[in-house]
Amino acid sequence: MRDIAYLELVCPAGTPAALRTAIDAGADTVYCGFRDCTNARNYPGLNFDAKELREGVAYAHARGRWVIVAINTFPRAGDVGPWHRAIDTAAACGADAVILADIGLLDYAMRKHPNLRRHLSVQAAASNPLSIDFYRETFGISRVVLPRVLAVDEVASLISRMKVEAEVFAFGSVGTMVEGRCTLSSYITGRSPSSDGVCAPAEFVHYREDGAFMESCLGDVVMNRYARNENAAYPTPCKCRLVTNDNASYLFEEPVGLNAVSILPQLKAAGVTALKIEGRQRSRAYVGQVVTAFRTVLDGLARGESKPQAVADLHAMAEGGKETLSAYKKGWK
């Protein structure tokens, strides 16, 4: 385990360029995935091959940083090969850890690469001390990425009773369903985060005009309706507008992004080891700006200084310009 006196900043890299940008901007750790269904951001034009990962690891290690690899989808029956190869490749490229969700893969990684750190993905939805202890005792995980449905006091309570590091989400897009257990995307499109590594894939998204309104659609389903001068959010199923009892509303969650910058001291006090920024699908420029701002705020926090400009930058970069503390906030449930 590294000795980290402050909150470790774990940043997304959808591309080798974004990896270098994140490192240069002050990421302690960068996470990425391979260019296939083995990772939960399996979008066109993203991700790494073995050569790119090896180069990325060299770049990070030369600067004392980490690269960890998300292999966090659930292998298909009869076709586990790509997932095993992904773990083997991550190990061979010198990755500092793999992020896994599937029980069979955790078992494989532990037996085949016992010295490669194993992080439990948020996709495993380990939401209580018993589950986390089970993964630790059975598969020797070093860290758990906590589900995005816990309040700060619940995070603190959980951490006080677990024997592995805790990583929590601090910024970016968040769903409202327990990760790894949501099939709304595949119900509508046939493709899901668990199996295919995609939620609401872009090829199913289209917009159509309906009189004075524009409708955003996912497959054959209308997800939202906007006035022509209104900004349309990406039609993610858990942020669509639905009608219940004749009332149209964002039943699950408004189209907002998570921004936990205002509660970093509380998260640190709760015993959090690492903060994760979501967004491997985002641009290199976005990654650079968010990481720079977080680095500034965290360094300020370590010295007891406030950094209002960096905080303002993060507010401005939240999804759709709207942000939330999501489940961290009391009363969210």
Binding site: V149, M177, L184, S249, F252, A327, W332, K333
Partner: peptide
Amino acid sequence: RQPLSVSMRCYHSRA
């Protein structure tokens, strides 16, 4: 009916 997702948030309460 097929269960499709689970949350901490209660959508019945919300609705």
